[in-house]
């Protein structure tokens, strides 16, 4: 009983924080986009519980909110792995071996492109251009840019992640 109450409190708190976050953007230009970006940044994904709150705040339907979320690649609808590796899949990186690098990374990490591994440790995602096109293959590793990424770099990265406590 006591435990259940705590959960409810925590949920109410999160919803309160969510509402406060959303309220900041209600009158801003393109407010819904800004609110979604803020939620995505704050929680790592946009929880389904945010949909009715966004709909009420912006006076639109839940379907419209969902339509906006599903349109943009950045908006996640479920939590991602502890580590996120984004590998560029666009032409300039293809020209310097990104297809082979991607296959190598997915195999080594034992995860499909665009998926999070079952243990929740690693997500590998495609990204279409990081603007590092003269220095490919390019990647974003937990938000940090990396250029001229080699298979050895991927191996070192994955090894470091696997050996974390």
């Amino acid at each position: 009983m006591r435990e259940g109450l705590e959960v409810t409190d925590a949920k109410a708190q999160t919803i309160g924080a969510m509402d406060a976050l959303i309220a900041k953007y209600v009158d801003a230009q393109g407010g819904l986009m800004r609110a979604l970006i803020a939620l995505n940044d704050a929680y790592g994904y946009i929880d389904a519980s945010a949909l009715p709150r966004l709909a009420t705040a912006f006076n639109i339907t839940k379907a419209e909110v969902k339509g906006v979320i599903s349109f943009y690649d950045d908006f996640a609808r479920a939590p991602k792995g502890e580590h996120v590796l984004r590998l560029c899949q666009a032409e300039a990186c293809q020209a310097v071996g990104s297809r082979e690098l991607t296959a190598h990374a997915c195999k080594k990490a034992d995860v499909e492109m665009g998926e999070t591994r079952a243990d929740g440790r690693i997500t590998i995602e495609p990204v279409y251009c990081l603007g590092l096109c003269a220095n490919g293959p390019a990647a974003m590793v937990d938000g940090k840019l990396r250029a001229r990424v080699s298979e050895a770099d991927i191996d070192a990265l994955l090894q470091a992640w696997e050996h974390e406590a």
């Binding site: 393109g30 407010g31 986009m33 906006v68 943009y72």
Partner: peptide
């Protein structure tokens, strides 16, 4: 204003819709 990962938003009218908070 920051986008959210959609190539098509480089098309000017699509960009304007995005800037209005829409798809």
């Amino acid at each position: 204003f920051i986008g959210a990962g959609a190539y098509i938003c480089g098309e000017e009218t699509s960009l304007l819709d995005s800037l209005e908070g829409k798809r």
